[in-house]
Design a protein around this nucleic acid. Sequence first.
DNA 1: CGGTTGCACTTTTTT
DNA 2: AGTGCAACCG
Length: 738
Amino acid sequence: MNSNTILEGLNPPQREAVEFGDGALLILAGAGSGKTKTLTHRIAYLIATDKAKPWEILAATFTNKAAGEMRERLATILGQENTRGFMPWMGTFHSLAVRILRQYGENIEIPKNFVILDDSDRLGMVKTAMKEIGVTEKQYTPRSIMSMISNAKNDCLTPTEYAEIAQAPNQQVAADIFPRYERLRKNGKALDFDDLLLETVRLLKNVKEVRDELRAKLKYILIDEYQDTNKAQYQIVKLLLNDAKNICAVGDDWQSIYSWRGADFTNILNFERDFPGAKIIKLEQNYRSTEAILNAAHNVISKNLQRSDKKLWTDQKGGSPVRIVPAMTETHEAEILVQKIRSEVDLRVRKYDDFAVLYRTNAQSRVIEEVFLRYGVPYKIVGGTRFYDRAEIKDLLAYLKLIYQPFDSASFQRIVNVPKRGLGDTSVAKFVAWQNMSGMSVVDALLNVELCNDITPRARESFLKLGNDLSDIAKLIEQLSPDEVIEKIVNKFDYRDYLSDGTPQAESRLENVAEFIGVAKSYADLGLAGFLEEVALVSSADQSAESAVTLMTLHAAKGLEFPAVFMVGMESGIFPGAKAEFDPAAMEEERRLCYVGMTRAREDLVLTFAQSRFLYGARQYNLPSPFLGDVDENFVKDSILQNNFYSSSLSDSFRQSSDQRLDYPNKSGNDGFGGLATTNAEPRFVPDDLELEIGDKVKHQIFGTGTVIKIEKSIVTVDFGVGKLKKLNVSFAPLKKL
DNA sequence: CGGTTGCACTTTTTT
DNA sequence: AGTGCAACCG
């Protein structure tokens, strides 16, 4: 590949960044300014000009998805096979850390086959530790303690160091729990997400040979989303850099939205201090959004005081104005989306996958899903209750982890009585205490349970059987692929029988198990260790091929773009969240989040809010988000609404908005918000009096023709062929009997 | 020991 | 609304 070809199609600052030679380089890249492109081309350029071999380059990204995307683009540019061996080292800091620790961790007493704790494992350990010192969950929520411990770890503090600086009462409690949590974790030969980074720092700091080996190997280090790196990540970078200091960081402080997780965007503002003589290049031309969208987004972010100064500009003058649309209720809000999406899809102006719906919290997705399902709008959810969070998958994973790492007590406690084997809290507590004293692994302790007094003969028998079953499978893991191991587990423990409990959910659980085995199969080449790592670190890779609207949180949307974007729930207390109300720094972060959301849109941006919303079991009346008022009314369609935003009393606000509701759809005419918008929470489709039976052929507007395979009251399950099962409500779904 | 019932609380955001 | 947890009973 010719290095000049790599420079084609880059604007002057992008090109400068790509061609920049050795030393420290900071690229301040505004939203949509071709950040990934620049980074990828720079890597390609380094390779093409022979500055470095692929394996001498390390690129840290924020998500695995971003790494995958870069890998793909790089392969295209270089015209090489997208094979693992050829590619530079690309991945999240966490996955890079896992790799380093698996290879070199034994130098600092980290077992090669450590397991990675997920959130609920961590929470469980915090709860156990809280019980030990007699702190109730009423006094302090386990979650808040966990986040304090997590923050301490992200600041690279040991339990002792944290105890020294702990001031407030809650910090002192956390300081008391911290070492206990650590003990539990270490007993299980486990690392949590924060440890992955922290232990990597410790390894690189303390083991000179490893540090030197990696420094000699890695000639160029590139970091994406630099504004979202935390202290530990920053230290890893510093420790990996050799004397040439070939670091290239890309970031945008305006898009820093992870400070709650320890990210520190001031590192971007301090780059010059950290790397004296660093070159700074700004990318300010936006290639993504129209001028109207960019201006509106700029209005919002401008209210922040803590930010670098830059001005994004675009060639795409004009564009359709940003819309601010009021809704009566959360259901009505979703129906507005349906109306707009449907009409544009029907007119072939857009496809379903041109749309994204962004919300502040995952809980908001449910109503939207319900309404989309009702009206037959196909959608896919990114994130949310993830596949790997489902109970049946977590059970199987726990078995898998325990077999892989026989010390993994957290996993053991999850599955010890799943399926039921007559082992209750009392017996398990006794066993765990004894196992801890004995120093044996969980599995060894199970096999030697007869040495443990104080356990009833019946329970003892049960423990022994479990131990035998587990070690039977453990003997096979060398020869079997991950999916075969799971299959063995499922069979040995009659797990399918356990799931078939006669409840309506049983079927989907069994499907999930099948899917899990399928996923494992696709990772067969990674082996069990690789598979477990993938599962622990990868967010749900939802790759449904069919065209569908994307639903996700604002956080999950970072780095993505869509022709049309809806931001829903633009209400005070939702977005910005209630917790930001009296916290200026948090408010600035919410504002950045709003900016991130708005700048995902290429052509159309619609902001919606509801007069009332059902939340936490009660109907709430929220004021429109202050961010809506920040948008200059010149950039907004129907800006007349703005005058009503800050009505003094809630009832006032409600009444005025009711008037708007009557007014609005007509005024909008046929621009996509008519019709449905006048309906309230009630669905409009009149049930067709479909008399369906199992086996009937039906036709659905979106999904096509299918066969009814199950009927529960008004919910029918229809098989639309090749495994496309859909649950539909006959009362609402546009179904026709054939 | 295990299942059931009733109560309380939840909500940021994610590797 | 749904879930998770504690207390109670069979």
